[in-house]
Design a protein around this nucleic acid. Structure first.
Length: 468
RNA sequence: GUCCCCUUCGUCUAGCCCGGCCCAGGACACCGCCCUUUCACGGCGGCGACACCGGUUCAAAUCCGGUAGGGGACGCCA
């Protein structure tokens, strides 16, 4: 039994998007589950469009998601001499030939074919050409079989068969001497001894040509698993106009990597009715056989729900480290291990769906309100407010309470001593402390703020109210 | 146009391979009720789907055929 070797092979022409991330995840999961090897390979044969920035962005995205690779990253651009060797081999054995048709000619023929309702494939003009004009610009084409059919067993979609007439002689080397994608993947996957190719389903049409190439080159054909696409809400291929598609953009919007991973793994794959998966559970339960055959729509609402779940159940110290820089952007300076910050995080874990929401909601803990929600304040008459603030100040100053529960008890006492109902006290105090009406429980706020700061804010509110 | 693939609630999906347990289960969203000092969390309930047509069968979401719809590919991009 041979050991599993899989790879993720993005082309560095943009950031890591959610579709690519899911493909990488499925590869990673299978490798981890079976104790195989996960390889990262950068497909940068298109020198024009490949950039260093994209490579960095992809690496950064993988790292953030915790998808670590065992070998690589390998760059196809480092292997050009190797590809050339194989092109020559094919040329020597007559399995490839030089084609002198110009791009303009090809373009024109393609358009004509389309217009006449024919398949716009290469017409084979140079296939049997005898003369080899010295120094004339040319590409190298693979001499593909023209009859019969080519098929492969897809681990997800089952057996797929293509009639060979549908496949034309694809270009394996450009006129500038660089190799093309379909040729390089085959060489690389063969040389890296990839046993299972897991990739997006937009590649199924390429697969029969690649199978022919493997055979022509004398390489064993790997197994294939084509995972369905991720679509936008209008059921077309997911793109920028559907909103964010970059993995890093989700990080910046305050999503936790485990939430995105959990969301992605459930998109197209399932394990009964399970929804929440830890990394370990995913690895243990993942099976390519349970990947669905149809495309799925990316649903940001569900991602948000998952994110809320992971914030709710996450470790407060770790979350504090994540909000801290967000707070800094909002000009709040606090150490990420500051007990007050950790306490603030704890009071917000059940209320924030993203870390950005948490940062915004935490602001009031570190900045006393500059203004109060007037319409909320207007629900109470001025003398009542003054009486409440007065009573709270006095009671607090004399109290030894320190926990949220003890503070809650203290507010209950204030209520019973003055014949007030809880909302009559809680709401004004909440406004005095946070400026608004939407905040954690009073006891939690007071505990997080500390007794002294609480009294200061109450006093200030008293002055403002009394001055009106 | 040609080829390839796909089709269960609005969305993600279970069930389909090995027909009956499915007048189809779970989750997100939505609606309602409860909990409650605000906002949330949570609990309970509701709404809501087998694309269509035909066949096989005592019985079909499940098997077979066709139709329609959707997606993808058709590049000296990957």
């Amino acid at each position: 039994m041979s050991e599993l070797r899989v790879r993720f092979a993005p082309s560095p022409t943009g950031y890591l998007h959610v579709g690519g991330a899911r493909t990488a995840l499925f590869n990673w999961l299978l490798a981890r589950k079976q104790g195989g090897t996960f390889i990262l390979r950068i497909e940068d044969t298109d020198v024009e469009r490949s950039t260093r920035e994209s490579v960095d962005a992809i690496l950064q995205g993988m790292e953030w998601l915790g998808l670590d690779w065992d070998e690589g990253p390998f760059y196809q651009s480092d292997c050009f001499p190797l590809y050339k060797e194989y092109v020559q081999k094919l040329l020597d054995s007559g399995k490839a030939y030089k084609c002198y048709c110009s791009q303009e000619e090809l373009e024109a023929r393609r358009e004509l074919a389309m217009k006449e309702g024919r398949k716009p494939k290469y017409d084979g003009t140079c296939r049997e050409r005898a003369d080899q004009p010295e120094g004339a610009p040319h590409v190298v084409r693979f001499r593909a079989p023209q009859s019969g059919s080519t098929s492969f067993d897809d681990l997800i979609k089952g057996t797929i068969t293509f009639p060979n007439e549908e496949l034309d002689d694809l270009i394996i080397q450009r006129s500038d001497g660089t190799p093309t994608y379909n040729f390089c993947v085959v060489i690389d996957d063969a040389i890296m001894k990839i046993t299972t190719v897991i990739r997006g389903d937009d590649h199924v049409n390429n697969t029969p040509r690649q199978v022919q190439l493997y055979e022509a080159l004398g390489f064993p054909v790997p197994r294939f698993a084509h995972v369905p696409m991720i679509l936008g809400s209008d059921k077309t291929r997911l793109s920028k106009r559907h909103g964010a598609t970059s993995v890093i953009a989700y990080r910046d919007m305050g999503f936790l990597p485990e939430a995105l991973i959990n969301y992605l793994v459930r998109l197209g794959w399932s394990h009964g009715d399970d929804e929440i998966f830890s990394r370990e559970e995913m690895v243990a339960k993942f099976d390519i056989a349970n990947v669905g055959r149809s495309a799925s729509v990316f649903n940001p609402e569900k991602l948000l729900w998952l994110n809320a779940h992971y914030i709710k159940t996450g470790d407060a110290l770790r979350l504090a480290k994540i909000v801290q820089p967000l707070l800094a952007e909002r000009s709040v300076t606090v150490a990420d291990t500051d007990p007050q910050l950790v306490s603030a995080v704890k009071t917000l874990q059940e209320r924030a769906r993203t870390m950005v929401e948490m940062a915004d909601a935490a602001l009031f803990y570190f900045k006393a309100p500059e203004a109060y929600d007037q319409s909320a304040l207007a629900k109470f008459d001025n003398t009542h407010l003054q009486a409440v603030f007065q009573a709270v100040s006095v009671k607090l100053a004399a109290s030894a309470a320190a926990t949220a529960a003890e503070y809650d008890l203290l507010f209950k006492e204030i209520c019973s001593e003055n014949g007030w109902k809880m909302p009559q006290v809680g709401q004004p105090v909440r406004i005095a402390l946070s400026g608004g009406t939407q905040a954690p429980g009073i006891g939690e706020i007071v505990m997080t703020l500390g007794k002294d700061e609480t009294i200061r804010r109450i006093q200030r509110a008293l002055v403002v109210v009394a001055g009106e």
